[in-house]
Design a binder for these strands. Structure first.
Lengths: 352, 352
DNA sequence: CAACTTTTGGCAAAGGGTTGCCACCCCAAC
DNA sequence: GTTGGGGTGGCAACCCTTTGCCAAAAGTTG
């Protein structure tokens, strides 16, 4: 039993490729040497390094990221959670995030939390072990839960402000004020706000900004909804607005606004002749819908980039170039297109 | 030196949460028992199981997926590669894929290959170790490379047909024929095809379908381009079409078509009065652009779902419900909206 | 009460790398 | 010739979990 020491190597058909020890065997060095040759260039002699690299190439060796991450703790992956992957707003977030992550050598893991705090929490419990850091877009979590998660895993919140959690928010307040001023200057006296999801933090902020701006300018503002942030829901929102007698409406987001445009056209309400519509976000499509949508242009993709930068900083992999603050505020501006116009001349009473 | 056997446990500050051995220590059993209590319910006594579960809860233990996957070989993650994450077409693919993957308990890893076969290949070399399977949307790889990759990792190609590789393709041929017939019936005699990226497999197929259908119906078809599949490129495409004297144009995709719509409006060319425009895909926005786009409606999201189903089957995790074939063909249909109309009366020569 | 079967739980070996520590070699300096 | 030092490479522990195998405990049967 001279060779009894050799254990049963091929326990299961190894589906994966060659391992580090295959490479080591092939060029007659220890696995540790191979590891070092591949990851710490100065640590071995040039001759050895070349032998190892050659052997690795011949075998087509690729290090196993799972094994590597087990020890190093790093996965080179960041997770992006959002309430609804179906919403074009988040497409731009994905874009910005993916671009910046890829540039830093990170992969992106996508999760749809289905507009539910509970689903979000469930994923959040599993993910920290699978990724290096997280970006939570429009999180539905409570402040307490959010802070708790943030304390145990590097995390950046997007469009969800909370003290103590690194945050980038697209500040619709500026834009909302601009929008209200725009409408006021066009002679509108009564405007409606078509609200988004109740759980949305941005929704609350947006309404507050509209309300105070309207008040300051002597306009009457009413809040409608909540509506789901979808094109379909635009029909209900449009009908609700017509009912209020407002001559202008500011929608929670462009999807809702575009849906309203469709419904208003269907009902023969002229936009902007009889009703002015303002969207929010300036998503893909806002410029070529009919009429082209006046909207608050939000730097969504940039928000994704900035959030990723901040996360990378947190992970110590930042470019260093840009030292971000804990709370990054990105301003919006009003883009005036064709869906807003002068208020219609007041009619004493609507025809029955 | 009685306790000399105990090694230095806390070599590095353990950033991650409690491990299985913490749980084991807490309730006085071996790690193997904890593992079994948590994953093989019948394997330990109910009393033990409860003790373990209680301890795990108290500690907030979450198994480390990396360690788990190292042994099991499974990551419960699938990778989705696409040439350009910026293209709304792929948004729908992402949607369908994410939905189906999530339903089966899989996470989604997103990769943008930047329209480059080389970038794609580079990612492809690293990924197999990090995911269980791959979906390649509109792969730019050569047939040989594609087959080679497919032989070493479970893979489904989307909109990229190759023998020997499981594939789901959205077959624009049917729709293209319908579109040409539609245009022919409206009296058009000459039509242009605004081509997409040269490396795109679908582009070749689409042109061929248009060309043969046109030929059969006695229409004259010219091919323009290639153009990048973007709204911006639509301007150049529109100008090129005007030059040919064609009265109708079929665009490689909706982005291009929508861009053409904008440029044509800018140049005062009436759509559909003077020029009919047909898009392809029916992406978000095709129904509310102006005029609403006549287009080949492609079941993009469903393609993503089917591709995911097929991959899951390959991984042995399929629902079993739906046995897919190796090559799945999804038909398109023409959706007629407002961007197509009767051919204009022929004018002897354009006014100078 | 002995012999046998079934539970139940523990030991230890993977799985594929990384890394602290040590041994060794070669060369220069004393 | 001995000592010291820098450069290389190997050993083995470690990361966390799963799982084959075995032994002890418990239960069953004659």
């Amino acid at each position: 039993m001279r060779d009894g020491g050799s254990p049963h190597k091929t326990r299961k058909a190894r589906r994966a490729g060659p391992t580090i020890s295959d490479v080591a065997a092939r060029c007659g060095v220890a696995v540790s040497t191979v590891s070092r040759a591949l990851t710490m260039p100065g640590r071995v002699s040039e001759a050895t390094r070349q032998r190892v690299v050659a052997a690795a190439d011949e075998l087509g060796y690729q290090p196993n990221p799972r094994a590597r991450s087990l020890l190093s703790g790093r996965t080179d992956t960041i997770g992006l959670l959002m309430p609804d992957i179906t919403n074009p707003f988040f497409f731009d977030v994905i874009r910005g995030t993916q671009a910046q992550a890829a540039a830093a050598g990170y992969s992106l893991m996508l999760v749809d939390t289905e507009e539910s705090a509970e689903v979000e929490a469930r994923h959040l419990a599993r993910m920290p072990k699978a990724v290096d850091g997280l970006i939570l877009a429009a999180s539905r979590l409570s402040d307490a839960d959010l802070e708790q998660v943030a304390s145990s895993v590097p995390l950046v919140a997007l469009n969800r402000g909370t003290r103590g959690v690194p945050t980038v928010v697209i500040d619709s307040a500026d834009g909302a004020v601009q929008a209200v001023e725009h409408l006021a200057s066009l002679g509108h006296r009564k405007l409606a706000y078509a609200a988004g999801p109740a759980g949305s933090w941005s929704n609350g902020r947006r309404w507050r900004a509209v309300y105070t701006a309207a008040r300051r300018l002597g306009l009457h503002a009413v809040r409608l909804g909540p509506f789901p942030p979808t094109v379909r829901a635009g029909a209900a929102a449009a009908d609700a607005v017509i009912n209020t007698g407002a001559s202008a409406v500011l929608a929670f987001n462009d999807l809702l606004a575009i849906g309203m445009l469709g419904r208003l056209a269907e009902r023969g309400v002229d936009v902007p002749g009889e009703m002015s519509v303002v969207g929010c976000d300036d998503i893909f499509g806002a410029d070529f819908c009919h009429p082209a949508l006046t909207t608050l242009t939000a730097p969504i993709e940039r928000a994704g980039r900035v959030a990723t930068d901040m996360l990378l900083d947190l992970l110590g992999r930042g470019t260093g170039r840009s030292a971000h603050r804990e709370q990054e505020l990105l301003a919006t501006t009003l883009t005036v297109r064709e869906s807003t116009g002068p208020a219609p001349a007041p009619t004493p009473a609507p025809a029955p």
